[in-house]
């Protein structure tokens, strides 16, 4: 890679102003979304023990999510402005509506699962919560992919799969940890299958990112990525070997897998900051795309004028005199 030009090494992009609440929300939002699906489907299969716990996890995770999001706002008292409009060009706007719908449906479904209240509304709320949960798990990837940050935007086709499988992983892991092993087989299958899927989606993302993926190889982006992989592999191994027979093992495996899913969100979050902060990650790929003729670029040296009237004093009008 050739040395790229910069202005005194200054960043071209601004780093996001988001704080720790945002990657936490990526985790809790995904966990809630996938847990709702797990709960609804388990109910259909007749596994009420698992379903009730999954509803509780889904409700807990979606209950804390708005707190994270509102606390991150620069003007928290204006959080309702998020619902002033519905705007498809803004995944954050669409996501605010998904989160609202999901929150309402999940609350009703979970309340009904534990208390039996509102049976008629809950009948509609249960499938609604399960359905809302799916985009709730992946829209956050669309949100960060729709920015100028190269490591996020260039991963726009694969990032939602990383987030979606990560959501399944966290939901399966935590629900398996809180459910008696005899009833938790679907959660264990979900956790292990999603761990595999997340690993593959991650590999594919890094492969497709190519030169854009460099921020994942250094700093916090790399550190969290290593932690995530170690926790996920260890957690999946424990879950696979002992998760069905031992409650403590299932709890330990669930904690490890949950930590793996959380670290994966942090890795992606931090890599974005690193990608925005270094001008070489922004300018370099843009310049090379121009040089390869794939992009027109934003500047032009040839003037779009016919005949130019020479200005007074310009070399075109004045005869050139050689200095003595």
């Amino acid at each position: 890679m050739s040395e790229t030009t910069s202005y005194h090494g200054q960043p071209v992009l601004k780093e996001p102003t988001w704080t720790w609440e945002i990657p936490m929300y990526f985790f809790t939002g995904g966990m809630s979304g996938a847990s709702a699906g797990l709960a609804y489907l388990s109910e259909l299969r007749g596994n009420q023990v698992l379903a009730r716990r999954a509803w509780a996890i889904s409700l807990g995770a979606i209950g804390i999510s708005p707190a994270f999001l509102i606390s991150d706002l620069g003007k928290p008292t204006r959080f309702l402005n998020m619902l002033r409009m519905f705007k498809v060009t803004s995944p954050m706007s669409v996501g605010s509506w998904i989160l609202s719908g999901s929150g309402a449906a999940t609350s009703l479904a979970a309340l009904n699962a534990w208390t039996g209240l509102f049976p008629r509304s809950a009948k509609a709320a249960r499938p609604a919560a399960a359905l809302f949960g799916l985009p709730l798990s992946t829209y956050t990837a669309a949100l960060i992919a729709n920015t100028a940050v190269p490591v996020w935007h260039e991963a726009r086709r694969t990032l939602p799969f990383v987030f979606g499988s990560g959501a399944g992983l966290s939901a399966g892991a935590v629900v398996a940890a809180v459910t008696p092993p005899a009833y938790a087989a679907p959660a264990r299958r979900l956790a292990i299958g999603a761990a595999l899927a997340e690993g593959m989606a991650n590999e594919l993302m890094h492969h497709r990112l190519g030169e854009h993926g460099e921020p994942y190889k250094k700093g916090a982006g790399s550190l969290f990525s290593h932690i995530s992989r170690a926790c996920t592999v260890a957690g999946a191994a424990v879950m696979l070997r002992r998760g069905a027979s031992s409650r403590p093992a299932a709890i330990a495996a669930g904690a490890l897998l949950g930590a793996g899913a959380l670290s994966a969100r942090w890795s992606i979050y931090k890599a974005g900051f690193q990608s925005a902060a270094d001008p070489k990650y922004v300018v370099g790929p843009q310049r090379r795309a121009i040089e390869r003729g794939e992009r027109p670029g934003a500047s032009r040296s040839s003037a779009k004028v016919g005949e130019i009237k020479p200005a007074v004093g310009s070399p075109a009008s004045a005869p050139v005199e050689l200095p003595a």
């Binding site: 489907l41 798990s137 669309a142 299958r189």
Partner: peptide, 28 residues
């Protein structure tokens, strides 16, 4: 990046469907 927003939503939608399929497989 608005020019890519269709592609971004398509990927997010496909990933949501994939998650749904994964959940069904895990439970059933």
């Amino acid at each position: 990046t608005r020019r890519d927003v269709g592609e971004i939503w398509a990927a997010a939608g496909a990933a949501a469907v994939a998650l749904g399929a994964g959940l069904v497989t895990a439970v059933f």
